Simulated assay, not measured.
Amino acid sequence: MERKRRMIVAITGATGIIYGIRLLEVLRKLDIETHLIVSQSAQSTLHYETDLTMKELKELADVTYSVKDIGAAISSGSFPTMGMIVAPCSIKTMSQIAFSMTDNLVARAADVVLKERKRLVLMLRETPLSLTHIRNMQAVTENGGIIFPPVPAFYTRPQTIDDLVNQTVGRVLDLFDLETGEFPRWGEDL
């Protein structure tokens, strides 16, 4: 029997919730089963940055979990996934992940992904960075995670914010060998 392709997507309270939303939309098109966690702070960000309701956000995912449910399926290494993307990722969440402070499902699921040697991508949204932030980024990287700030690429000559978001989301999904076909590539399309 063929195993389902599953991706954990966590949305935390940093600005840039559109990245998490677009990831869910694109993963659905790619027929990847999504498992969504939305932090308490992300619920506020959703209100500030979009017109979506929490119900509409949750409907973009196949399965949703409460951030408090540390006994959820995705908190076990025996539940197979492709990995996890935190989009956007707050400094608080990144710091919890860096030091295995697993008192919520976002940090617990990320810890499981790392221990199972799966891909963990943190779309870190903060600037400027303090030395503590940089050291915590180093700890995540040393543990196998990937720090992926959503930095726009202008060589694609984006015309809209959607162009910028699609390119960034496409590059994140490249890390999982998933082709979105949603943005031009250097040396191929440009």
Rank of each mutant, 00 (worst) to 15 (best):
M1N: 10
E2V: 11
R6V: 02
R6C: 13
M7C: 06
M7Q: 04
M7A: 11
V9F: 01
G13P: 03
A14V: 01
G16E: 02
G16M: 06
G16I: 05
I17M: 09
Y19R: 01
L23S: 04
L23D: 03
E25G: 12
V26Q: 02
V26H: 09
L27A: 08
L27Y: 04
I32P: 15
E33P: 07
T34F: 05
T34Q: 07
I37R: 09
I37K: 03
I37P: 00
S44L: 14
S44P: 00
T45Y: 03
L46Y: 05
Y48D: 11
E49A: 09
T50F: 15
D51V: 15
T53S: 15
K55G: 01
E56D: 13
L57P: 03
K58F: 02
L60P: 01
Y65F: 09
S66K: 12
V67C: 02
K68R: 13
D69E: 15
I70E: 14
A72F: 05
A73K: 10
I74T: 08
S78T: 15
F79V: 06
P80T: 04
P80K: 13
T81M: 06
G83N: 11
G83A: 08
G83L: 02
M84V: 13
M84E: 09
V86W: 05
V86T: 12
C89D: 05
F99P: 11
M101H: 13
D103C: 13
N104G: 11
N104Q: 08
N104W: 03
N104E: 13
L105G: 10
R108G: 05
R108M: 15
A110I: 12
E116K: 14
R117C: 11
R119L: 06
L120V: 08
V121N: 02
M123E: 04
M123P: 07
M123D: 11
R125A: 10
T127R: 04
P128M: 06
L129I: 04
L129P: 06
L131W: 07
I134N: 06
N136W: 06
M137W: 10
A139V: 11
A139E: 15
T141F: 09
G144C: 06
I147D: 11
F148W: 07
F148H: 07
P150S: 12
V151M: 15
V151T: 14
V151N: 14
P152K: 07
F154H: 04
T156F: 08
T156G: 10
P158I: 06
Q159C: 07
Q159R: 14
Q159I: 00
L164Q: 13
V165W: 02
N166E: 13
N166S: 15
Q167C: 12
T168R: 02
T168W: 05
V169D: 06
V169Q: 04
G170V: 09
V172K: 01
D174L: 14
F176C: 04
T180I: 11
T180M: 03
G181Y: 02
E182K: 04
G187S: 12
D189H: 13
